[in-house]
Design a protein around this nucleic acid. Structure first.
Lengths: 146, 146
DNA sequence: TATTTATTAGACTAAAAAGGTCTTTTTAAT
DNA sequence: ATTAAAAAGACCTTTTTAGTCTAATAAATA
């Protein structure tokens, strides 16, 4: 139940490109070095990010990556699901046939709710917001601490 | 980002024992058959559930498992984390040193929040609640649909 | 007491996923 | 033509998952 390195790296890369600004060309080498991401691995991840329409890839000498969407139009969820696939948490949520009980099962309901909340939290976190500097005093919300 | 089969099976077993009631002896075979869980695999999972104090194991002829905690005192989170370890979602949440940025990083904050909400949802789902029959008309809450 | 039928505990295994690397090819600037 | 960037896909290693198998132990019963 954890994010993969590919997902983590994708977020770092898009955040870096967001700081550069939409439409600015940045080499893979630069991203790789600044974000501490293996260069070849980034190449693979970038292909997926391009397929999903977040970046454009320029080949040839002085090639690199360009952010094509605006940071406020990209969410953590979008980027993560682009490289790791849809977050499901529990198989029965997306494949009810995987569990003969799911029709009547209250556990199923909890997973549907948990998944909705998780995806919602990640969806609301746009890269525009993620670029904002952290404030020093954060308002604590312990309403549903575990 | 998904629950393991071990976690899924543990939930099924505890739910089955909850229906039987606290203190009732049930054989591994019966649980295995009713819950569609491989018997030998259940044996391994049960060892962990016993270590965590959810069940007691009786050996010998006519042995089996007994629920020792009350269903209202066991949550989905408890059972799942017993067999799969603590839910972290992102490494940086529990090991900030794994990411050189985590101190200043707004992404880190999102993961902390997402994790807290997820664990909270699973914590609130006790097995007493999970035993309740599903009502036919559920109130729809689309407040933060993705 | 011997037998039977439970479970334990730990070694073992197969398959899948994760996390990359390597090599060859293509592309574009100089 | 040369150079330096990325693409595409094969390949590889390690870890995790999802079990199985075997020998030992434990308790009820014939």
């Amino acid at each position: 139940m954890r994010l993969t390195m590919a997902g983590e790296y994708a977020v770092r890369a898009i955040l870096y490109l967001s700081h550069k600004g939409q439409g600015v060309l940045t080499s893979r080498k630069e991203i790789s070095e600044h974000c501490d991401v293996p260069s070849q691995f980034l190449a693979k991840i970038a292909q997926q990010l391009a397929k999903s329409g977040f970046i454009e890839i320029l080949q040839g000498k002085s090639g690199g990556y360009i952010l094509v969407k605006q940071p406020q139009d990209i969410s953590l969820l979008d980027v993560i699901e682009s490289v790791t696939g849809e977050i499901t948490l529990n198989q029965c949520v997306v494949r009810p046939e995987s569990c003969k009980m799911s029709g009547e099962c209250t556990v199923h309901e909890i997973w549907v709710e948990a998944r909705r909340k998780l995806r919602s939290t990640l969806k609301q976190a746009t890269f525009e917001k993620l670029m904002e500097k952290k404030v020093c005093t954060t308002i604590k919300d312990n309403s549903d601490n575990v």
